[in-house]
């Protein structure tokens, strides 16, 4: 399994997508007064289709299936390396968010760059993964439909949160309130986000592995 992840980063995925891209999307956090989820979504728009197209053109699954690994491990490895790239994006995002707050202060027209924001971001990635992977592993080849479906889910979710923040003061207070209670709540949202991310990824893996088992590569 570890070898499969190592293989992905050494052979399958261009380093641009896990070194340069996180910094580029992270740098978007420096734009003032912005719906920051869009910065993270460039991962969905650019990295996802590129990486999965490259898997196809390099015959990545054909290679993996020849190694002494189970089909389950192939799915686990593939999802794991994907998660690692997502985490790199979130981490660099967090670093740039920190710089943003230092530069401009926390106040933002849309959702502020606080703990709750990253909790919601984890949920958005979780949603993307649970939609994307089970559809993708029906073929382990066609990435177009799963990319679109997962994007729609992630965009609707993030848009709903942003709109609630804009038009519902109670909700806005939950996510942006500065009182100690609200700050605790926001940390809880972050932890919940991480929990949902882990849970959804696990479910996505289970569903994907089952489907991949029945594919004839």
């Amino acid at each position: 399994m570890r070898s499969l992840i190592y293989k992905d980063f050494k052979l399958s995925i261009n380093w641009f997508f896990f070194i340069i891209m996180p910094f580029l999307t992270g740098a978007l956090f420096l734009i003032p007064q912005w719906p920051f989820f869009i910065a993270l979504m460039y991962f969905f728009f650019i990295t996802v289709p590129n990486v999965f197209a490259t898997y196809n053109s390099q015959n990545d699954f054909g290679f993996a299936i020849m190694m002494p690994v189970s089909k389950n491990d192939i799915v686990k490895g593939k999802i794991s390396s994907f998660i690692i790239i997502e985490l790199i994006h979130l981490l660099t995002g967090a670093i740039f968010a920190f710089i943003h707050v230092k530069l401009y202060g926390i106040d933002n027209f849309m959702l502020d760059l606080n703990f709750a924001f990253f909790g919601i971001a984890f949920m958005m990635f979780a949603l993307f993964n649970i939609v994307f992977f089970p559809i993708y592993f029906k073929s382990a080849y066609k990435y177009g439909i799963p990319t679109i479906a997962a994007n729609v889910a992630a965009i609707l979710f993030a848009a709903a949160v942003e709109l609630l923040v804009l038009f519902n003061p109670v909700f806005r207070n939950f996510l942006e309130g500065r009182s100690p209670e609200m700050k605790v709540l926001q940390i809880i949202i972050l932890i919940a986000g991480i929990g949902i991310f882990a849970l959804f990824n696990f479910i996505a893996y289970k569903m994907s592995a089952k489907r991949f088992e029945n594919i004839d590569l």
């Binding site: 190592y6 293989k7 050494k10 052979l11 399958s12 390099q58 054909g62």
Partner: peptide
């Protein structure tokens, strides 16, 4: 088991030594 299906059309942009360094990790 050694297993080969068709020619090696994997990772056309990679060097042979890079690919072999990966394969050897599996065995």
């Amino acid at each position: 088991i050694a297993f080969m299906m068709g020619s090696s059309d994997y990772y056309p942009g990679r060097k042979l030594k890079t690919i072999s360094s990966i394969v050897q990790r599996f065995y």
